[in-house]
């Protein structure tokens, strides 16, 4: 095995344990794995931001917006958004290094077990889609890849209008933008939205809103990072 990030040769440790139990494959060498930090400690119960308060000011602001009931029950994030993570995400998503996504598989599954074990097996994973243009450009949807890691059925039932990249917009533009999502079929089960990053939460809320509108009982989200 070679490290998917630095291509260093990894020599698997040989012990009785590894002989008798198949261990989870490791895709990163220890120094590279060390650079990613899994979020631990106190966080906002709603959006996963590191915070001492139960609910962070951002989420209070969402809740106070009387125009809608917040459609998202909660978001759980796995990693913090440090420089190493930024580089990996850029290579995976923007450069299109598809395999690199495997690096996140283990941690994403563990986080699912930790945060969403209460969900029934009926629940479905719904990836945040890319617009057709963006899909054509990148060749794959990183959120779909994440959704497929989960031990749930993946329903790719959302579609998206083309607009400028979220990452190029300001906070105000994101929050006030029109809802770009449509639903291709309805779901009567709880839904976990899968996406790579929660920044302002507007994308996930737009998607959650469309799902709720068509009768979905509850919408959660599991993102790789809390930006």
């Amino acid at each position: 095995m070679h490290c998917l990030w630095c291509d260093a040769d990894m020599i698997p440790e040989l012990s009785w344990k590894t002989i008798f139990w198949l261990s989870r494959p490791t895709y990163l060498c220890p120094p590279c794995a060390e650079q990613l930090t899994i979020l631990k400690g106190k966080r906002c119960g709603k959006c996963s931001r590191e915070s001492d308060e139960e609910v962070c000011p951002d989420c209070r602001w969402w809740a106070a917006d009387a125009a809608w009931d917040d459609p998202l029950v909660r978001n759980y994030a796995v990693f913090s958004y440090n420089d190493a993570m930024k580089e990996m995400i850029a290579k995976w998503k923007y450069r299109g290094d598809y395999c690199l996504g495997k690096v996140f598989e283990g941690a994403y599954q563990t986080a699912f077990k930790q945060a969403f074990s209460f969900l029934s097996r009926e629940a479905v994973a719904v990836p945040i889609p890319l617009s057709d243009e963006r899909m054509h450009e990148r060749g794959f949807n990183q959120a779909k890849m994440l959704a497929d890691f989960l031990p749930l059925k993946t329903w790719d039932i959302l579609t998206r209008n083309h607009s400028e990249k979220q990452s190029k917009k300001t906070r105000r533009q994101r929050v006030t933008a029109a809802n770009p999502f449509q639903l291709t079929r309805t779901v009567k089960h709880p839904v976990i939205l899968a996406d790579d990053i929660y920044t302002t939460g507007s994308t996930l809320r737009h998607a959650a809103f469309v799902l709720k509108e068509h009768g979905c009982p509850a919408v959660y989200a599991l993102t790789l990072i809390r930006g």
């Binding site: 070679h2 290094d97 598809y98 395999c99 899909m135 054509h136 794959f140």
Partner: peptide, 13 residues
Amino acid sequence: QKPSLFGQIPCHH
């Protein structure tokens, strides 16, 4: 030509 530096991707096209 290094095998570890080739990956597999489901092609969208």
